[in-house]
Design a protein around this nucleic acid. Sequence first.
DNA 1: CTGCAATGTATATGATGTACACAGTAGCCG
DNA 2: CGGCTACTGTGTACATCATATACATTGCAG
Lengths: 282, 282
Amino acid sequence: MDGTRRPSEAPPAAPRPLPPGIDLLWGRRARGGRGPRPGLSVDAIVTAAIELADAEGLEAVSMARVAKALGFTTMSLYRYVASKDELLTLMWNASAVGVESLTLDGATWREKLRAWALVQRDMIDRHAWITQMPMAAPPLAPNSMTFVELGLASLDDTGLPGAEKLRMIGLLSSYTLSEARMANDAARAAAAAMAAAAETGETPAASPGWTFETLLRELVDERTYPRLHAIAWSGEIGDDPSGFDERAEFLLGVDTILDGVAALIDRYRGASDDGQETASAR
Amino acid sequence: MDGTRRPSEAPPAAPRPLPPGIDLLWGRRARGGRGPRPGLSVDAIVTAAIELADAEGLEAVSMARVAKALGFTTMSLYRYVASKDELLTLMWNASAVGVESLTLDGATWREKLRAWALVQRDMIDRHAWITQMPMAAPPLAPNSMTFVELGLASLDDTGLPGAEKLRMIGLLSSYTLSEARMANDAARAAAAAMAAAAETGETPAASPGWTFETLLRELVDERTYPRLHAIAWSGEIGDDPSGFDERAEFLLGVDTILDGVAALIDRYRGASDDGQETASAR
DNA sequence: CTGCAATGTATATGATGTACACAGTAGCCG
DNA sequence: CGGCTACTGTGTACATCATATACATTGCAG
């Protein structure tokens, strides 16, 4: 995970203590070696919590269940973690383990940035519970930073100012997270519907009956929602049976954003010669 | 569970009942006029819940507190609402009340779409708790649909296929929601820090000490995060004292997306003549 | 008038996050 | 070496939460 634990030597510059939660995240929580040797570790706790979340979803992660999985009592966790929120933050950071050894292949900034977005999407899909996180603060976690740094690197040759690069990274990241969230929500809703149908009996398969498309057709009447109605009945909507074209959808969105980034880069490159690219009135 | 109890006679056009939650949302929950007259209504409940959420945040919304605000017992709410999740969905829908009488001013699709994004952002900011909603399913609420319809309308003259229009709407919407969430999270975190500082004593003002920028400077070391480090110390980061330039940031992101949309439109317009616009490899 | 569906309530249950007090452990200082 | 003390794990307690269930009450439909 990160394991950084400064061994007692106090760094000269420690004027104010870091905000709660941040310190642990960055391995700056002190640990005087006085009492009994700890039988547990933050890493073990976080790992157990993540295993639980992977297997049963974020709502299955309670202090009690994590503790039980480790063979300790509920309260013992609080010797390592200040609150459940802190644990969640740590899980969030840990979910991105491995970023530091990532490289994006691609020759152009565009290919690299696209790859970056894909990597993020993959990471999220690997731990679907990420999309359900409360996220009470801006992601000031080391692995998030590493990932941002990686994204910034893909824009190295573009001549954009740092703040703009950061903005573009954030933009792409926002989209990725949102899209993953929706895909995941839909999947979960479908699963829940299936489970409910199975409980009341009836043929388990083919019984759900409601796809997104059929629901839309049922609800959206032509007069109030003419455009939606047209789309709903046009058959243009891929019915997304297994999430296969969901990924394609996502990539289309990414490409659109990349077009926007390209426009921004062009605008900065041809700063004075007033390029007539896609960008119009600003 | 849902209260709809068809009195044995099957209405001609109701082959399968709608999924739970959706029916109430679209006003399709039956109500046989048999028992005592209801002293409560779904609307009243939702209104009370929203008032609570506006005032104290979404975490203050519990069945007990909503009921107390209305002068009823906790369990009485369940006569009108199947679960808390359902109530949340209704709140989500109600937060967009008034969309049906909205018009977007602007001559071009670009101006209109930009206005659309701004309206959404305003709606979210007016009810900050929206960003904290669990959102267990795709937003199949009437007001959401109305809003989507409005967005689609702004792309009327662009010649995009319906599915592409929808994708663009979704893209912009994703970004708006994510951005609002981050801004709101940051604000809440700052408020929490302030409150914590006030509780432990010390001068309430000027004491938090940690802004995003100073934190970044403290945590991000030059070797591991060279690019971030450079940005953090460049002073390029607006320190966002009151959220004033947050709005400007948001608009910049929107404009970037709109550039991407423009590229897409151009690609569709010059379908055969292979335009050399910003769009590159697809 | 009578029956039954619908309403509001009281009570109960099992989770949940976390405060607090306690007992045992082991490094450090004398 | 002995004791102080910081630190560990535990047990108990509490407030809050969503919700199940049983019940008394109400008032339209027959």
